[in-house]
Write a protein that binds this DNA or RNA. Structure first.
Lengths: 121, 121
DNA sequence: TTTACATATGAACAATTGCTCATATATATT
DNA sequence: AATATATATGAGCAATTGTTCATATGTAAA
């Protein structure tokens, strides 16, 4: 009695593990941070965008250079750069008709390296 | 003449930047690695899975505990644990009727921390 | 062996995603 | 001003994804 009926039901083991569960709940970052973290990784979760970022590790590049290097259409490249820009991972620099994109974050390389460590385990 | 017609056309600037593009192309990891890296980040790119992983930073937990803590159905939890297991991020341990899941990789926490660094910039 | 509990899984569905195509915008050249 | 080049963007579409619902599997207790 006194329990909210709309809540998830507790299993037998959940009652036993109550302390662990409560402690884990307290250590959890706020909902918003976890959501934003997932959104960031979602941006990394596409091989076209991974390739674009990797290309920019070398040097800034304009849209048509990226498209040529990665064998993409100009449109597809531009769409993906927009996603990367919105995630504050790349930034544009205009020079005449061209727009040069470069990486806008010093953590990306570290994140990628850790990711590769997992893959090559 | 002699150029393959199926290839992406070079812009004027691409011809100018040929050296940079070629160098970036040489430094690019093999296609397969880039694909696998994207697949890994895709797994991180969902807030439910992020929450599950975060919960497991504290301690191993059985399916119903995770479901209760994160207010998920048993089915949804189980489906997502399967994705995490296939990506070799968690591993199961049977104990009677329960199956306890724990993290199976020491890089995850580092990847998450770098991700949070980017977000909180 | 029957019953209950814990977990896994397949089908179905809505929502999201990445691409292409067509077109708009912006800049430079003539 | 007219044309060409570089980039951005909206609509449309096929493919993928995360959830729910129903049910199957596996284990323990009665």
């Amino acid at each position: 009695m006194g329990e909210k009926s709309s809540e998830q039901l507790k299993c037998d083991c959940t009652i036993i593990h109550e302390e662990v569960i409560e402690r884990a709940g307290r250590k959890m970052p706020p909902e918003e941070n976890l959501y934003n973290l997932a959104e960031l990784f979602k941006v990394f979760g596409d091989s076209t965008r991974i390739k674009i970022i990797w290309a920019l590790f070398e040097e800034e590049m304009c849209v048509c250079d990226i498209a040529y290097l990665l064998n993409l259409t100009q449109s597809a490249t531009s769409h993906q750069l927009r996603v990367l820009k919105q995630a504050r991972l790349v930034k544009p620099r205009r020079e005449g008709k061209n727009i040069y994109y470069s990486l806008d974050d010093e953590h990306i390389e570290e994140i990628f390296n850790q990711g590769l460590n997992h893959i090559n385990e």
